[in-house]
Design a binder for these strands. Structure first.
Lengths: 98, 98
DNA sequence: CGGCATCCACAAGGATACTG
DNA sequence: CAGTATCCTTGTGGATGCCG
């Protein structure tokens, strides 16, 4: 929970699960996230060994993020939870669903 | 993530997964949690249909909390994640692990 | 015993502007 | 393009005290 505690962590993980992404791509793939949050989450994920960051020293700059095996495993462990969520989302709407 | 977003939600779920518990029991089973947080989390969990609250109108008061089928399903979906966590906890310690 | 009300503190997240 | 720096708002959780 600590590792995926961020508000957008799992979304990032999901996006990355599909394919390697650049910073800008992720920003677009996770609507509503700000650069700062994306950057910090990415950094934390990297420090936790969940994602791999590969910077290409060229112009224009290009940085690609991908899942590490560890991250893939995490995503795998996350999948049942995601399935559960989709199964019951908007079905039991008892709360404001902030 | 919304449903289990609370800091202690999953711990409560885990405790409840083993058996029906009273308020005081939960408070003891989740070390460090305060009554307020436990109460509010419990309430949210109840509103989300995850736990069942059964109050016995007697003295001394007794309230028992148990998992609903939905909650059991959630806990089930959570288990792989828990397994992953235990597998890698304190193994990759790259961060302060706040 | 079980729980709510109030107040408080901190950190996470969001917006904007700026840099290499 | 890919961040970083700053500031601010908010939510979440913590402490205490009171009530049925």
């Amino acid at each position: 929970m600590d590792v995926i505690g961020g508000k957008w962590k799992v979304l990032i993980l999901w996006a990355l699960n599909e394919r390697t992404c650049r910073f800008g791509e992720l920003r677009r793939m996770v609507p509503g996230i700000t650069e700062k949050v994306l950057a910090s989450h990415l950094r934390e994920l990297e420090e936790d060994g969940i994602v791999h960051r590969e910077a290409h020293e060229e112009v224009p700059p290009r940085v690609e993020y991908s899942l590490t095996p560890l991250g893939a495993g995490l995503n795998d462990a996350l999948r049942p939870l995601g399935a559960w969520g989709r199964e019951h989302i908007l079905t039991d709407t008892g709360r404001p669903s902030a």
